[in-house]
Design a protein around this nucleic acid. Sequence first.
RNA 1: UGGGGUGUAGCCAAGCGGCAAGGCAAGGGACUUUGGCUCCCUCAUCGGAGGUUCGAAUCCUUCCACCCCAGCCA
Length: 569
Amino acid sequence: MDPNEITRNEPVNFIQAIIDKDKKNNKYGGRVHLRFPPEPNGYLHIGHAKSICLNFGLAEKNNGLCNLRFDDTNPSKEEIEYIESIIYDVHWLGFDWEDRLYYASDYFEQMYQDAISLIKKGKAYVCDLSPEEVKDYRGTFTKPGENSPYRNRTVEENLDLFQQMREGKFEDGSKVLRAKIDMNSPNLNMRDPIIYRIMRETHHRTGDKWCIYPMYDYAHPLEDYYEKITHSVCTLEFEDHRPLYDWVLENLNAIDAPQQIEFARLNLSNTVMSKRKLRMLVEAGYVSGWDDPRLPTISGLRRRGYTPEAIRTFCDRIGVAKTNSTVDIRFLEHCIREDLNKKANRVMAVLEPLKLIIDNYPDDLVEEMDCENNPEDPTAGSRKIPFSKIIYIEREDFHNNPPSKYYRLSPGREVRLKNAYIVKCTNFVYDENTESITEVHCTYDPESKSGQPGAHRKVKSTIHWVPAKFAKKAEIRLYDYLLTDNIGEHSEDDSDNDKDFIKMVNPQSIEILKNSLVEPGLQNAKPGEKFQFMRKGYFVVDSDSTQGNLIFNRTVSLRDSWERIMRNN
RNA sequence: UGGGGUGUAGCCAAGCGGCAAGGCAAGGGACUUUGGCUCCCUCAUCGGAGGUUCGAAUCCUUCCACCCCAGCCA
């Protein structure tokens, strides 16, 4: 059998199909080499995660390599802080570029020399047109461009001028280097695109060594080529740039030139992905920072309690195609529930406490109840929780006048207290002043203790609880979708819908509960630890949490079919 | 308007001429000391119209819709 023959059960995305074909034809000598090339001008979000998983994933599947490369060709927008956060996040997601961490800025000299080659071939020229004039000469969609009056300078003159540009002889914006292609091209990117500009800006890595910087369209194909990239994967909006990408490499006589392949960026329902909109939310104070648990940033998701595994599973399952699409955020939620269901220990926490007194239970008795840590994982073991006469239950688990299909506690009815006894409601106390129920009275069935023979008796419902005397106070933060609706986002810089988008910010995206109670063992929980609060959802200890001031973030609620019953009524 | 792309269920997404995978969501049901998990069942004729073919989501023609491009951003 041909070793290059690839057999797979799973459907293959169109990029993998291209790679399969290239391997079969022994293109690039059978090598597969990709890269994830962020510009260090902001924090990574789940849209980047899609690209990271795609690139590193394809490398892994094909026995290839994937580089991490910072595309730092514009010092006016880039900062070290972003480089550090990006490195941290990509590692956190679980990917390894080994020793292949690169910077476009490391190639500045080589790029400069290649520009000289283009000039020598008569393929590039120095242009003195002002930015406004460049724009006017470019023409429009329907009107062809006009040649720059500087287009026919001699090679010698261009060489001399370009060197002087580098030496800082000219002011910012006064000259540019342009590729000489075709001012009549229907593709505006091919109308003598600017490939170098003069910009006196201190670069975070090269300092003040350079005052000219290459443009993306010129730099990117070279970066890929220098690193021997085979498949240069980027997003759809660069499709029109592909002819220029190829032009640069062709005119430099590149051998085994990399090929650019475009896929659709990720959009998620009920949130935003573009840097500018994310920034608006942070700067206008709609959220607390770039790692606010409501944001789709990697740092936000991490603080929210998302695991790298869930994010990667999500990215793998949404697929890769060229269709603009918006993935339902409920699919992301499904992925984290699925992961945490296997991993998170079950504990009891009462978010909105209601006192319950067991009148026939001995006043001073404390029993240690045995609780299984995770029914999905037998190796997770069990723990003891103290039980006594006064406990707290969830306020919504008692109803003095229960609606139909309500299975929980109400006057005269029985429920099981999880891992403890069956109790029957005998009475409750209503406070006229606060117009609320302040306590519930029950009697318990001593024969019904969990694990004992009498425990087999079935009751309609089981509810969670915490012991009044031993429970710990905690702050619990509940999150809801960032936006109440979906916003169409197909490119990074779509500013048309900025106003509409602010109108969609969900005013109830966060709810903070200050008086919640958790079982005593949670006292020592450390930031980042994840739990399932039984019947309520998955929660993570917030990064600001301390032993004396416990804070939990709700990662995601449990699926709730009772809520659905209520909603459908 | 010129160019470049995309259109398969509420949301993703396979399919590449032979009688529409899968997942999420939704709705039923079984099980259950989490109204959780798990398990079972239900849920499309492929943007429209023509045509080619014994046979088309897949080929051809044409129309329509949506997205991207006129930064010395990436």
